[in-house]
Amino acid sequence: MSSIYPLLAALLANVFAQVLKPVVLYLRTQKLDVHQCIACGGFPSSHSSTVTALTVAIGMSEGFDSTLFAITCVFSFIVIYDATNVRYYAGKNIQLTKQLISDLETLKGLKFSDPIYHEKIKSVLGHKFIEVLGGILLGILVALILFELLHI
């Protein structure tokens, strides 16, 4: 077994997740947006697929009872939690702030001249549960398939 297997699994899972994003978006909306390949958010979560593939690959190569597997598990839980909660709600806060600024301008006639109020900020930073689940499943699949390919 190659010692680079965990790294390859993680990188491949990330690439596959990013390449799948515009495909899934197209299937849902019939709109092609290749920029989704480098976007945050969307289905599947590349954060989740990457850390899951790394964790499974470490488990397969080092053993599921190894210290290294335990470390990557904890690391993965932190990244996945961040992707679904912290970053998701940061995106929601951005949406709310944009709406408040728009409402104040419309309803109160206020004009915000400071450029910071008109900055283009992406409001979707994190993931919904289903996007994370898709990333986790993709990460497991990539790690297992790559394990089989490298073991032949």
Rank of each mutant, 00 (worst) to 15 (best):
R28G: 03
L137S: 01
F43P: 01
S102K: 12
K128V: 04
S102C: 02
D65E: 11
I130V: 12
L138W: 03
L100R: 15
V142W: 00
L54D: 02
I80N: 05
C37H: 00
L144S: 09
I94E: 06
T72S: 11
L144F: 08
V142F: 04
S113N: 09
Y81G: 15
I130M: 12
A39N: 14
P22L: 10
L149W: 14
L8D: 02
T72W: 09
L104A: 12
Q30Y: 15
D82G: 08
R87D: 04
I78V: 14
R28T: 00
I136C: 13
V51Y: 07
V132I: 09
Q36F: 03
L138A: 07
S45P: 00
Y88T: 00
G42I: 05
F43S: 07
V124D: 14
L11G: 01
I4L: 15
K111D: 15
V24L: 12
I38K: 09
K108R: 14
L54A: 03
F16S: 05
V79M: 10
R87G: 04
T52C: 11
F64I: 03
M60T: 11
L149K: 11
F43L: 11
A9D: 09
D103I: 10
T52H: 02
K98W: 10
G126I: 05
A90S: 09
I136K: 08
Y117R: 08
D65I: 03
V132C: 03
V51Q: 05
E148V: 04
V23A: 08
I116E: 14
L133P: 12
Y5N: 03
E105P: 13
F43T: 14
